[in-house]
Design a binder for these strands. Structure first.
Lengths: 223, 223
DNA sequence: GACGCATGTGAATACCATTTACATAACCGG
DNA sequence: CCGGTTATGTAAATGGTATTCACATGCGTC
């Protein structure tokens, strides 16, 4: 079979052959352009060159498509964060910073995914796959926080879960408020990445993870 | 005239008399129930008991109504934050904490306003009134940060603007992720208010605003 | 080669946003 | 009090969207 369902003349045969994927691609294009609210099922169908009823063979309704985009977004997000964490190399502190940068880079470079994930108003309870993908993303932050906490003497050690929630909230707040694909809602005196890095640095110093204001390059060499 | 445009029999006369306000109330109800995306102009009109064309006498389109809700939300938000700040009484540190609690309380108690303000995808550039109201809210955080920074010796003093952005981002992140009116997307081991307070405490300690892990009640008594 | 299931079509239903022409009444000057 | 002007509301029309249903197509399989 022709994978895209097209003959030699370029016209599509009765069956598309890959409609599900085509709809998801269309959704990403459209969400990136007009936000998750502006995305319409009919547009996606037109984009894929099928009738407006065809998408219902692959998704129960419009929301299920968005949920699938969000799920894929979380999978990709988790991959990016895991790659940035790199098992804590070269050292937990530098790796933690890399995760923060990867977080904002994802929000900036994949606004469609990020919108579907956090701004589409999806219910995570109704969709175990979505919940699981979201959990996997969060697990990276959790893991990184564990590693950083482990650096502290047990009596000063904060709850790693709390620390990961703080990191997540700060990252998400900066991403939502200042680092959207459209350039952000508000002018900043610094790049979002710098804002996040400075914030986490101050936070970690407050925890005592960093004894002194520290040169990260020196830190890298030490590890 | 009858302010609500109703005669003694309770039926509305041809003119509503207070439609603009009624539509805004309806919008708040509906946004609270189904989110800013689920809110429809037609529903609001039905709720107010007028035809579906009537709202256009008061708002250019659906978005202008949402923008007005958002603007009012920011005004109310600024009032609440200012009240919590209370000119830095009893001392800047305690007042700063109060602002954080007020932030989350607003997000929890006024989910309709909060949604319209931060999740409706409004463009602040097209609406000076909206921009101005939003600026007034942020100004409270900025003012509080200024006062806290002033406690530090000049050579250790961080940029107050950066600090206020950190506080805003952390608050907004926690509100968005964990403190929505619907109970939040994810279970937490602690109340959102505690999470924010702990986070800001650690942050301020990292800045050196708080010399030691400190009992806030003792701090209040001292001031 | 016939059959069944997956996939796509067209038409129908029911909403919603928005516009337009028209209706009503509130207000205002005389 | 009266007539004109303006603000506010209505009904109907247009065009778009979500969703469903009966029907069509053709891939894969026996």
């Amino acid at each position: 079979m022709s994978w895209s369902g097209r003959g030699q003349d370029g016209r599509r045969s009765y069956h598309h052959g890959n409609l599900r994927e085509a709809l998801i691609e269309a959704a990403l294009e459209l969400i990136a352009k007009k936000g998750p609210a502006g995305f319409t099922f009919a547009d996606a169908a037109r984009w894929a060159g099928v009738s407006s009823a065809a998408p219902y063979r692959h998704f129960r309704d419009r929301e299920e498509l968005i949920a699938d985009v969000a799920r894929r977004g979380f999978e990709l997000f988790a991959d990016r964060l895991e790659h940035a964490w790199d098992d804590g190399r070269p050292n937990p502190f530098t790796a933690f910073e890399n995760v923060g940068r990867a977080y904002l880079a994802f929000a900036r470079d994949e606004p469609a995914y990020y919108s579907a994930m956090f701004e589409a108003g999806l219910s995570f309870d109704d969709d175990p796959a979505l919940r699981q993908a979201s959990d996997r993303s969060f697990a990276v932050l959790r893991q990184a926080s564990d590693a950083l906490c482990a650096r502290l003497p047990p009596e000063k050690r904060p709850p790693a879960l709390m620390m990961s929630l703080h990191a997540w909230a700060l990252s998400h707040g900066i991403a939502s408020l200042f680092s959207r694909g459209d350039g952000g809602r508000r002018k900043l005196p610094m790049a979002p990445e710098e804002l996040l890095e400075a914030g986490m640095l101050i936070y970690l110093q407050g925890l005592g993870v960093i004894p002194e204001p520290v040169d990260t390059k020196a830190e890298s060499r030490k590890a």
